[in-house]
Amino acid sequence: MGLSREQIAQRVAQELQDGYYVNLGIGIPTLVANYVPKGIEVMLQSENGLLGMGQFPTEEEIDADLINAGKQTVTMATGASIFDSAESFAMVRGGHVDLTVLGAFEVDVNGNIASYMIPGKLIKGMGGAMDLVAGADNIIVTMTHASKHGESKLLTNCSLPLTGKGCIKKVLTDLAFIEIKNGKFHLIERAPGVTVEEIIKLTQGELVVPAVVPEMQF
């Protein structure tokens, strides 16, 4: 079974803290904005030069000059600010963003991440991902645990060109919440209805499994 895209986003949102500045990548990470816990305030950073990204506009509010990093039309939240791309990445590179959530193709036991290129097949570019993984201390990677064909994406060594080296400490997949430390994956939580055995089977890199693995709570 495993988590839906929305449930992955929902679980990530539990990691948000009051007063966090957060950069959400394209895809599942974007959905995290829909599940900000009640009673806390977060400000979303969009790397094209917007801090304080609001919800999508109504048809009447659409403004071609106001988009997010996924090129979608957006609005500005109260207290937003606008800046150029160099300033935006000064924030990122300078470690001022409290949490970064982004997708990946592969992650390995040494915290390496591959997310931008499949040689010979898909060459779209890294966008801001290399800057984000190099600049942030607190990163959560969201992805499916394995490919449709059952090939693990949590590996001993990434097989694809890297986006960043030794920078990933937390991964949330459709099956599990995993931390990376001391060259190993550590199983922290499992998705509701998913067994530890299933997770072990679909994790190629070394996985440390504690005696009790709690189920995620929603």
Binding site: E47, D84, S85, A86, S88, F89, V92, R93, Y116, M117, I123, G125, M126, G127, G128, A129, M130, D131, G135
Partner: peptide
């Protein structure tokens, strides 16, 4: 010919 460059690095190269 394509030289893929990280977005923040590209902005800083121009700056």
């Amino acid at each position: 010919e394509v030289e893929l460059t990280p977005q923040g690095t590209l902005a800083e190269k121009m700056r």
